[in-house]
Design a protein around this nucleic acid. Structure first.
Length: 459
RNA sequence: GGAGGUGUCGCCUAGUCCGGUCGAUGGCGCCCGCCUGCUAAGCGGGUUGAGGGUAAAACCUCUCGCGGGUUCAAAUCCCGCCACCUCCGCCA
């Protein structure tokens, strides 16, 4: 749900070979792989990087362009620095010199100043060119991620049994119809006021969302996450740093008059939270759970999921986010998945877990698991939550480091949905409905709904 | 929205009027060593980050909120921006 599938991820993958999941230690492999965005590592082993690009379905030539830009940059840097050093030396002599000798020095140094300025401009241009190229590179797909595109995911697990409504003797209503019966969802007025893909949660619908949010935040806090309510409008830096202005740019709402963006997920403000900071290794992992609205333009999804509130321009979400070391990130990814599963289990929803294919990863993810809940009226599993290991990709862009004995190094960042409101409501209503249109409240939510066990149709 | 003030290496701070001797003072904290039954105190040293360079060093460059300008030379002068603080106005 987080990553909006984009153009880059759609290219056909040819010869993309996923290294089997039995590959020894994922950590040891990825320590080197994840550093690819670091030019020096890339310089040291370009073949590895080219190969990684191909597995994602991306053009490997980009790596060579980066290397060329890097070479030019180093030439420019060396040239500038040599001149600048001379200028500083002469400058010191100028300060001490007198009379004619001073005039001679000034003449030399004046000429040099022009050259230094030129060299500095060259260096800056070379720097910008390298930087621009580097920022177009996506993170490297983990060797374990299945090769291919959107449909090439691997199913890791299925939990629970989809209900047999035929056996129960009634035809399931879809969430929109249930929402009307319960007085919980109003899409007509949502469209009147804001347009297509907008809605009002009304009455018990509003209460249900608040219950879900509170239950999710309470759980996250219990698991050790620091509760957060972050800003939903951010500067370009935060958006770029998290990789959302690349392939997903068309799905981002922007406010050009104020140079701000509406976030599609609180992953953005949570990742940028520690931008430009150096964290003590001892303070990791740092875990945050944020409640925020999420805004998505859903460009390119015309005609998809147009009924109800399954795919909307705005919803609220409780998101988990972790800062940790690269070495720990793989285990943390599994932990985030485990928490997502625990949550879905407590909601009594049948779901499956998939391992997203390399070509369907967002710009910044190295690996992504989605949890998909069964939607009875659609007869299939649909994404309810998603967790990504972004390794050091976002941390490099946002300059978030950790202090270790051997200097500093980028941290690893991970994110995972705990509760995305609109879709969770869809899944709850449809899966827990009864013949009379009432809906059973899972035990976990009852304390947050005044003990109610059933949501009843109004009138 | 209006007026004023502030922004220095983890924290605090000197320097900015009068440009070069300031990559930058001092204290706290932290690290290493000495000393000491132990701890504390004391003594000596170290302690921004990044890039280039090297086998590794040496060495060089950049970094005083950010960006630009003036100058042979900018923490220091000029311009713009940002953030924070105070006061006034407005407002959920």
């Amino acid at each position: 749900m987080l990553a909006v599938a984009g153009r880059c991820g759609r290219l056909d993958v040819e010869g993309g070979v996923a290294i089997g999941s039995d590959a020894q230690s994922p950590a040891s492999v990825l320590v080197t792989l994840a550093g690819v965005i670091d030019v020096r590592t890339l310089r040291a082993d370009p073949a590895l990087a080219r190969d990684a690009q191909e597995r994602r379905g991306e053009p490997p030539e980009l790596i060579d362009a980066v290397l060329a830009a890097d070479e030019s940059r180093r030439v420019a840097v060396t040239g500038f620095e040599a001149m600048r050093a001379e200028q500083k030396q002469l400058g010191k002599q100028v300060a001490r010199a007198q009379g004619g000798r001073k005039q001679d020095l000034l003449a030399r140094t004046r000429a040099l100043a022009v050259q230094v300025k030129q060299a500095d401009a060259d260096r800056e241009r070379a720097d910008d060119e390298l930087h621009a190229l580097l920022w177009t590179l996506p993170n490297l797909a983990a060797p374990e991620a299945p090769a291919g595109g959107e449909d090439d995911f691997r199913v890791l697990d299925e939990v629970g049994q989809p209900r047999d409504f035929a056996a129960a003797g009634f035809e399931p209503r879809d969430h929109l119809e249930l929402g009307r019966l319960l007085g919980a969802i109003d899409t007509e007025r949502g469209a009147k006021v804001s347009g297509a893909r907008f809605y009002y949660l009304t009455g018990v619908g509003a209460q249900l969302e608040l219950a879900l949010v509170q239950a999710a935040m309470d759980r996250a806090a219990r698991w050790g996450f620091t509760p957060m309510i972050p800003p939903a409008l951010v500067r370009p830096r935060a958006m770029e740093g998290t990789g959302f202005l690349g392939q997903a740019a068309a799905d981002v709402y922007s406010l050009p008059a104020d140079d701000l963006y509406l976030v599609g997920t609180s992953e953005v403000p949570l990742a940028a939270y520690h931008a430009d900071e150096i964290l003590d290794a001892g303070s990791l992992p740092r875990r945050y759970a944020a409640f925020s609205p999420c805004y998505r333009r859903e460009a390119g999804s015309y005609g998809k999921d147009t009924r109800g509130i399954f795919r909307v321009h705005w919803f609220d979400k409780v998101e988990m986010f972790t800062y940790t070391t690269l070495a720990d990130s793989y285990a943390e990814h599994e932990r985030l998945l485990a928490w997502e599963r625990e949550w879905l289990g407590e909601l009594d929803l049948p779901y499956r877990v998939i391992d997203t294919a390399a070509g369907d990863l967002g710009l910044s993810a190295a690996r992504k698991y989605d949890c998909e809940a069964w939607i009875p009226t659609q007869g299939r599993y649909r994404e309810l939550s998603s967790t990504s290991n972004c390794t050091q990709y976002q941390a490099r862009r946002l300059d978030i480091r950790l202090r270790a004995e051997s200097g500093t190094q980028p941290v690893a960042t991970l994110n995972g949905t705990l509760m995305a409101s609109a879709r969770t409501i869809v899944a709850l209503l449809e899966n827990h409905q009864r013949a009379d249109g009432s809906v059973r409240v899972p035990a976990l939510l009852r304390p947050y709904l005044q003990g109610r066990e059933l949501l009843e149709p109004i009138r």
